[in-house]
């Protein structure tokens, strides 16, 4: 028999951690001032402090993509950044893309193509798809498959996800080529 101990904490760890401070985040066009510990992830800030639970926690380690949000139009894993680092940024969550009454084209396409089952990875998939379209890279099926592969779907709805993203990306790319070259070529996130 042997004896092991875990986490024999050093004395300095036992001091009260850094106290919560004030953080102001601009989420879906609205300012939120929160009091939170500086090591609070953006994901936890959204879910536990702002009440925007559409952004999902699937692993908390940047491995599954369920927490994908758009920061200044770029898709990121919100579990891998701290809330305090995103002060001044434009954060768009699934709630900012559309509502049940006014669905975003990607949201409608996900419904039409049955691109989800349990729905838990879905907000992340949709935010990731919007990010992909913003990047202007969703030109072929293989490109969409590859560049949507940071978002795991355990229900295995990948066929529907591909078709939904393809449908919207094709429309967006067509619109982009009709308007002027060099513009962002995507609809706004509102």
């Amino acid at each position: 028999m042997s004896i092991v101990s875990t986490s024999s904490a050093a004395d300095d760890q036992l001091r009260p951690p850094v106290p919560p401070g004030s953080v102001t985040l601009r989420i879906n066009g609205q300012e939120h001032t929160l009091r939170l510990a500086p090591w609070t992830s953006l994901l936890d800030a959204l879910r536990e402090y702002v009440g925007l639970t559409g952004t999902k926690k699937g692993c908390d380690h940047g491995q599954c993509g369920a927490c994908t949000v758009l920061v200044d139009g770029k898709r990121i894993n919100s579990c891998l950044t701290l809330a305090v680092l995103q002060e001044g940024a434009d954060i768009t969550t699934i709630e900012g893309l559309g509502t049940p009454e006014h669905l975003h084209p990607l949201q409608q396409a996900f419904i039409d193509h049955d691109a989800f089952q349990c729905g838990y990875c879905t907000p992340g998939q949709i935010c990731s798809a919007q990010g992909l379209i913003n990047e202007g890279k969703a030109h072929t099926e293989d490109e969409i498959r590859e560049l949507m592969s940071g978002n795991i779907c355990r229900c295995g709805a990948y066929v529907g996800i591909l078709n939904a993203v393809k449908e919207v990306a094709e429309k967006e790319l067509k619109m982009a080529s009709c308007t002027c070259y060099g513009s962002h070529g995507h609809s706004s996130n509102s």
């Binding site: 925007l52 639970t53 559409g54 952004t55 999902k56 969550t93 699934i94 709630e95 893309l97 559309g98 509502t99 049940p100 669905l103 949201q107 409608q108 996900f110 419904i111 989800f116 729905g119 879905t122 907000p123 949709i126």
Partner: peptide, 9 residues
């Protein structure tokens, strides 16, 4: 329940 799931509702 699609509209609820795709909007995070």
């Amino acid at each position: 329940d699609g509209p609820l799931k795709v909007t995070g509702t």
